[in-house]
Amino acid sequence: MKTESVQLPGKLSKREEDLRSSFLKQLETIPNSEKIKSCIQCGTCTGSCPVSYAMDISPREIIALFRAGDLETLLNSKSIWICASCYSCQTRCPSLIKVTDIMYALKRLAMEKGIFPKKFPAPALSETFVKVMNNYGRLHEPLLIVRFLLKTTPFKLLNMMPLSLKMAKRKRVAYVPSKIKGLEGFKKIIKKAELMDSPKELLEPQYLKGSVGYSAIAKETVMESKK
């Protein structure tokens, strides 16, 4: 972790401020997302996570980094993309934090801002998935895998051959992608939704405004109790 990227609680660089407001916007589509403030750092999420052993920043640390105001380090880690979305953490969190949904929100933030570690396969998969689906309305698995591998690791296509042949022999490969009839309407829905997603009015949700780092949270609680 670069030391210069860690800001003192309460003080944020311009870039970090921008990331933070975009992230808070992403949280709006998660019910009760303000629970992120009540993390007690118990580590149940990390302990329950089947893939935390491969992460460079554990789920517990992810929440801590957000609260400390360092989203940039977080977005540059592999962790959010290693999450397999199994929901173990979310199920067990004693503070009812929707950890998996927060992982998704972080993935969206990384895609939106174009920040990810070098040589990274996971965003490419999501991107290819979206492209294939927008053209047909349904997912065609062979097309997804071929396009994804061409984009990332073309030599792996050869490795896939034995399995593909085996699958084809058992009639488990559909050669022609199926297309939905209402594709025109479907594309209109996508266009409208993309418009809603992209030009972000950067409004911060009221509940998290100004709360950066532990000191800020403490200040807020003091103020609330004085009321």
């Binding site: 992403q26 969206r108 998935f129 979206v130 689906m133 349904r138 939905i180 939704a193």
Partner: peptide
């Protein structure tokens, strides 16, 4: 009739309104 892909786990990581909209269709 004419169902579309639900978006699976990949879509959620790209766009939020979009992923819900296609699933809501």
């Amino acid at each position: 009739e004419d169902w579309n892909c639900c978006g699976a786990t990949a879509y959620m990581g790209v766009k939020e309104t979009l992923s819900f909209a296609i699933s809501a269709r």
